[in-house]
Amino acid sequence: MKTLNISIDGTEIGVGQPPYVIAELSANHNGNIETAKKIIEVAAQCGASAVKLQTYRPDTITLNSDLPDFKIEGGLWDGHTLYSLYEWAHTPWDWHKPLFDHARKHNITMFSSPFDFTAVDLLEDLNAPAYKIASFEAVDLPLIRYVASTGKPMIISTGMADAEEIGEAIEAARSAGCKELVVLHCVSGYPAPASDYNLLTMPDMAKRFGVLTGLSDHTLDNTTAIASVALGGCMIEKHFTLDRTGGGPDDSFSLEPAEFKALVDGSRTAWQAMGQVDYGRKSSETGNVKFRRSLYFVQDIPAGGVITPEAVRSVRPGYGAAPKHLEAIIGRRVVEGVAANTPVKLDNLSD
């Protein structure tokens, strides 16, 4: 059977592998490259599998216009135009090489979400090991095809996309040469309530499209992300900041270091707990088998004596015959005499 597992920067992702947890740096550098570097360092310390950037400039993602179409009303970014928001939030392109170098220095994988062809070209020059298509770009099939043409592993987020659009994005990626793909279930609310996530969509998506699935999580805690592992999620992406009160565009719905470390640990524990189908006795249970119930004599019975209902009980510990034999031994005789408070041994009973 062909495996869907993929590999990013030497790490296998998918069935049989622990969750791949991505720290989304996004705009949380707040315009300071040293903050960006510190986020990379702390993400590595928290056990993140990778750190992800977003590669755009305001002019590559929108138009510099204050017409109503381009104004944001309500929510976190109320009052901004799209251009002013992305001017505030973007990661300068001349930071990319220093940040990629810094990630390598701290032994953590780095890749990015490109938002146009020129961003892909920049990331190719930096030998990015994978690409992420953001939810808002999941309908940009030319961009998906261009990214797929690199031959690198791809991750596609599905926020706001319906089943038809998800299918179109996957087909665009595959038809343009993508061989390694993970599709992330996502809700593009900032923050998003857990009740919107409908995680049961994940196994359906995996079956319907024949893909590995994961979660891009915008809830404010880790419960939803950890639960996704139990539904087959092999990848989790979560926004990461040093200080949620930092005032940046994405800080308020991002995890701080202690929370992110808890996500890494909790998702791995959930994965370990899923395990495999196994009805056998577990190693941690071995010492407690003796405390199960079994049959004990509660009266003395001489050799050849008949076992009466009053002479036997099912009690703890478990050194005697199993309780399922109780009815079968009533009326039988003991070969050798037995004392009260001793276990019933089936080989001491006559036929």
Rank of each mutant, 00 (worst) to 15 (best):
S267M: 07
L199G: 05
L123F: 00
T224W: 03
T245S: 15
E237V: 02
Y146T: 11
G151C: 03
S157N: 12
L123T: 00
A148V: 07
C178S: 15
A227F: 06
G214Q: 13
A230H: 07
A225W: 01
S149H: 02
A128R: 00
A173G: 10
P129D: 10
T241F: 09
V229F: 02
G214T: 11
H185L: 14
V182L: 14
S228Q: 03
I144Q: 05
K261R: 14
V264Y: 01
A230T: 11
D217P: 04
V211E: 02
T158W: 12
A194N: 07
S149C: 02
F260M: 08
T241I: 12
L220C: 11
P193H: 14
P249T: 10
L184W: 10
D204A: 11
E137K: 14
L242K: 10
G247Y: 13
L143G: 04
E180V: 03
D250T: 10
D217H: 08
D217E: 11
S252P: 01
S216E: 13
P203S: 11
A161C: 15
D196L: 12
K207I: 00
A172K: 09
L255W: 00
H239F: 01
V264R: 00
L215K: 09
D196T: 10
L242G: 11
G214Y: 13
E124C: 02
M160V: 15
L199W: 05
T213N: 15
M154L: 13
M205Q: 03
H239R: 09
A194I: 07
D250A: 06
A262M: 06
R208F: 00
R244Y: 10
L184C: 13
M202V: 00
R174K: 15
F253T: 07
L263E: 02
T201I: 12
V139G: 12
S252H: 07
E180N: 12
T201R: 12
L242E: 12
G247N: 09
I144L: 05
T213Q: 14
L141M: 14
A192N: 07
T213A: 14
I170L: 07
L215V: 07
T213Y: 15
N198R: 09
P249K: 02
V187P: 02
R145G: 14
G233S: 15
E256V: 09
A258E: 12
L141G: 09
T223L: 14
D221F: 00
G266Y: 08
M154W: 04
S267H: 05
I144K: 06
N222R: 04
K238C: 02
G189M: 11
A230V: 03
L242C: 06
A172P: 09
P203G: 09
M202W: 06
L143E: 03
E168L: 14
A230E: 05
S195F: 02
L220F: 04
